[in-house]
Amino acid sequence: MLFGIYSLLSAGIFLVLDALDVAFIEAAVGAGISTVLMLSTLALTERKEKEPRHKAVLPLLVVLVTGAALVYGTLDMPDFGDPKAPVHQHVAPRYIQQSPAEIGVPNMVTSVLASYRGYDTLGEVTVIFTAGVGVLALIADRRRTRRRRRRG
């Protein structure tokens, strides 16, 4: 429930920052659907955790190493809000100057997302599709599994 309120608040922040497209997503996904999914997951789980079968040393080590690598990666990043950061110098000015003539779509976010960065968006859609397939494969209806087992 707190997550939902947090998402709604950050949607408000995006709105204040004039990032309407992101605010839309945050309000619909973060505040709406994630909250419902979280509640339905809570309804599926039990009150007490099961006894772990393995020791937690190896997973802990993997998490620590990955976390350290990620933190090390952030050291090279430009300062927050730095106007000389590569992201403001490289392709962004070109998108802003050329997109009305090249794409002709009034909403520049759409033109960057769908046309200039079409590959990335295709990847995102594939990720969402894979998430759906994963959920179906992991926790789909039990009856179907039983029937398949009987057949096999």
Partner: peptide, 15 residues
């Protein structure tokens, strides 16, 4: 209307 105003496939799908 995603071409003209805020929005697009992701937002519309979720709504």
């Amino acid at each position: 209307h995603g071409d003209y105003g805020p929005g697009g496939g992701f937002q519309a799908g979720v709504i």
